[in-house]
Simulated assay, not measured.
Amino acid sequence: MNTVNVYIKGQEDKELISFLRYFPSRIKNIGMDAVFDRQIVYDYKDGRNHLEVAKCVAKFLVKKFGRKICNVVFSCIPASSPERNEMRNRHFSELVCKFSGAIDGFSHVSVIGERTAVHGTKIKKEERAKRINEQNNIEIDADFFKNKEVCIWDDVVTTGASFNAYVSQLEQAGAHVTNGIFLAKTSYKYVLK
């Protein structure tokens, strides 16, 4: 998987990358490469292809941090419910940390209740950010994250609102977020290769 640079306003001091381009299902006129990438995203969300994705993420982390990786916390942006978060992120986070040597932050973040998932919904950027902020049901162990270097993972980045909200929460607890890694970056315009 090749990496794609990601730009999120307000996060210029962080290295942000994604491995794939994700075309929402409403985008119909795409090639087989995009269909294949979309299926990787769906499989990840359903908890199926964690091993291969974890190997790619771990390889990136080791290349980025080298021997310092043992001091970096790997933290997944929680899914919209405790059940989805468990299915999507627990085993994946364990694998990434096992392969890379990073510190697993999964057990230091919890999801309380459920919020409406914002991926795949046709809403304006401002409304998406408002929903994320209003429905923040993420609790973090502030003592654990304080003064730690943190690398954040999320499956799909569209506007960056979820990433910004999670970064803000971690940094308010005293963490230093250095990176954002995403399985896929949402795209709407497909260009034939």
Rank of each mutant, 00 (worst) to 15 (best):
residue 43 D to W: 13
residue 187 S to F: 12
residue 28 K to A: 11
residue 148 K to M: 08
residue 165 A to S: 14
residue 44 Y to S: 15
residue 148 K to N: 02
residue 86 E to F: 08
residue 6 V to L: 11
residue 81 S to C: 09
residue 42 Y to F: 15
residue 14 K to V: 02
residue 82 P to G: 03
residue 101 G to Q: 04
residue 145 F to N: 11
residue 75 S to R: 02
residue 23 F to E: 06
residue 15 E to T: 13
residue 123 I to Y: 06
residue 76 C to L: 05
residue 77 I to A: 01
residue 140 I to V: 14
residue 1 M to F: 05
residue 142 A to H: 03
residue 120 G to V: 06
residue 131 R to N: 10
residue 139 E to I: 09
residue 33 D to I: 09
residue 60 F to K: 15
residue 163 F to P: 01
residue 158 T to K: 08
residue 91 H to M: 11
residue 86 E to W: 07
residue 140 I to P: 03
residue 140 I to F: 10
residue 170 L to G: 03
residue 99 F to P: 01
residue 8 I to D: 03
residue 174 G to A: 13
residue 45 K to W: 04
residue 113 G to M: 10
residue 121 T to P: 01
residue 18 S to R: 03
residue 108 H to E: 10
residue 141 D to V: 11
residue 93 S to F: 06
residue 73 V to S: 00
residue 138 I to Q: 01
residue 166 Y to H: 05
residue 126 E to V: 07
residue 47 G to H: 09
residue 71 N to K: 14
residue 2 N to M: 14
residue 95 L to N: 05
residue 156 V to L: 11
residue 166 Y to M: 02
residue 37 D to G: 00
residue 175 A to V: 03
residue 37 D to Y: 00
residue 30 I to Q: 02
residue 133 N to A: 12
residue 68 K to H: 14
residue 169 Q to P: 03
residue 170 L to D: 02
residue 185 K to R: 11
residue 111 V to N: 09
residue 129 A to N: 02
residue 1 M to H: 02
residue 67 R to M: 14
residue 73 V to R: 01
residue 190 Y to T: 07
residue 101 G to H: 03
residue 69 I to H: 04
residue 87 M to D: 06
residue 33 D to M: 07
residue 75 S to P: 01
residue 36 F to G: 09
residue 103 I to D: 08
residue 46 D to L: 15
residue 155 D to I: 10
residue 93 S to N: 09
residue 174 G to K: 11
residue 54 A to Y: 04
residue 81 S to Q: 05
residue 73 V to I: 05
residue 68 K to E: 15
residue 10 G to H: 13
residue 85 N to S: 09
residue 119 H to R: 02
residue 74 F to D: 12
residue 145 F to R: 08
residue 180 G to L: 05
residue 13 D to N: 15
residue 76 C to E: 04
residue 139 E to S: 13
residue 183 L to F: 00
residue 62 V to P: 06
residue 105 G to H: 01
residue 81 S to L: 06
residue 7 Y to L: 10
residue 123 I to M: 11
residue 12 E to R: 06
residue 168 S to H: 13
residue 107 S to C: 06
residue 118 V to I: 13
residue 25 S to H: 10
residue 92 F to V: 00
residue 122 K to I: 02
residue 121 T to C: 04
residue 164 N to G: 09
residue 144 F to N: 00
residue 105 G to D: 02
residue 31 G to S: 09
residue 47 G to D: 08
residue 157 V to R: 00
residue 192 L to V: 15
residue 75 S to Q: 05
residue 171 E to G: 08
residue 116 T to A: 14
residue 4 V to C: 12
